[in-house]
Design a protein around this nucleic acid. Structure first.
Length: 276
DNA sequence: CATATGTCCTGAGAGC
DNA sequence: TGCTCTCAGGACATAT
């Protein structure tokens, strides 16, 4: 499940494509439902073939390739999407190939096991409008003041609010659990009840966890789906404190068992002794 | 406006 | 062994 640290790792890993000219875009013919392309393949080919990839950036959990045509190609990996500059985990879920010329990589691949991800091409104007409307500030660069302002009046539970990309972009189910555990805030706490000191603690935990996870190149969970751009595992899964650890002893208090609850149809893991 | 819920998709694993 | 069922969760459409 690529969240901010995995997508950031992806962006860094595909750096060799910068400067490359897209010679050909190919949609792989698979016995699977094709991934979502906007516009459709024919129009997309027309608009990007022959253009150069001038830069790579990240907006929350999305990868943004800026092209020489002043268009922006946005890749959304969602649950199982990967961008690669090496052989993919297998051929059966390889979705797109971008053949490149004059770059450090011969091709850029998009692989997606479940196929929930997609690719959208925007003009720079459309891009600005779209992201202003759908994404809040990035979790890695937001200020404490803005974070507090955006959350403190909400009647939602903090865990649920952290997953809302319009509120803050980049946090997903895994990192929400890890951040709340480190900041010792119970996932069911309603935002309105969280104190100023706790927001500061949450903010620092968020910066700390995300930075640490990027250092370890993200988390490859037990299903093995997430890989970096060279098809190698991340290693932050070896440093998780609570995620998917129900029944294990909390690494902080070393007494209570990690619990699992469901919020907004997603699993939440936490320590009932440490998190209040 | 804010918040809540159903849906999409595939493969892994459980249970029988 | 092979079937059915459940689960994983990011983002969007639709409903409240």
């Amino acid at each position: 499940m690529p969240e901010l640290p995995e997508v950031e790792t992806m962006c860094r890993g595909i750096a060799p494509v910068v400067g490359g000219k897209i010679q050909q875009l190919t949609l792989c013919d698979l016995p699977l439902k094709p991934i979502r392309l906007v516009p459709d393949l024919a129009k997309l080919k027309q608009r990007i073939e022959g253009k150069t990839i001038e830069g790579i950036s990240r907006k929350g959990k999305r990868v943004v390739l800026s092209l020489s045509s002043d268009n922006l190609l946005v890749i959304e990996p969602r649950m199982t999407g990967l961008l690669l500059v090496s052989d993919p985990p297998n051929e059966s879920h390889l979705r797109l190939k971008f053949k490149l010329k004059n770059a450090g990589a011969k091709e850029l691949l998009y692989w997606d096991r479940r196929g929930l991800g997609g690719v959208t091409l925007f003009t720079s104007e459309e891009f600005q409008q779209h992201f202003d409307r759908t994404l809040g500030p990035d979790a890695l660069t937001v200020s404490l003041k803005e974070l507090t302002q955006r959350f403190q009046k909400s009647s939602r539970e903090i865990k649920v609010a952290l997953l809302d990309q319009k509120a803050i972009a980049g946090i997903g189910n895994l990192y929400a659990a890890e951040i709340l555990h480190l900041s010792k805030i119970h996932p069911r706490r309603v935002c309105q009840t969280i104190t100023k000191a706790e927001w500061k603690c949450l903010y620092q935990a968020m910066q700390g966890i995300l930075t640490e996870a990027i250092l370890y190149e993200g988390s490859t969970l037990s299903d093995g789906t997430y890989r970096n751009a060279l098809n190698k595992n991340g290693s932050y899964q070896n440093h998780h404190r609570v995620y998917a650890k129900a029944g294990e002893i909390c690494p902080l208090c070393k007494k209570a068992e990690i619990e699992r609850i469901v919020q907004a149809q997603r699993s939440t893991f936490f320590c009932g002794k440490c998190q209040k």
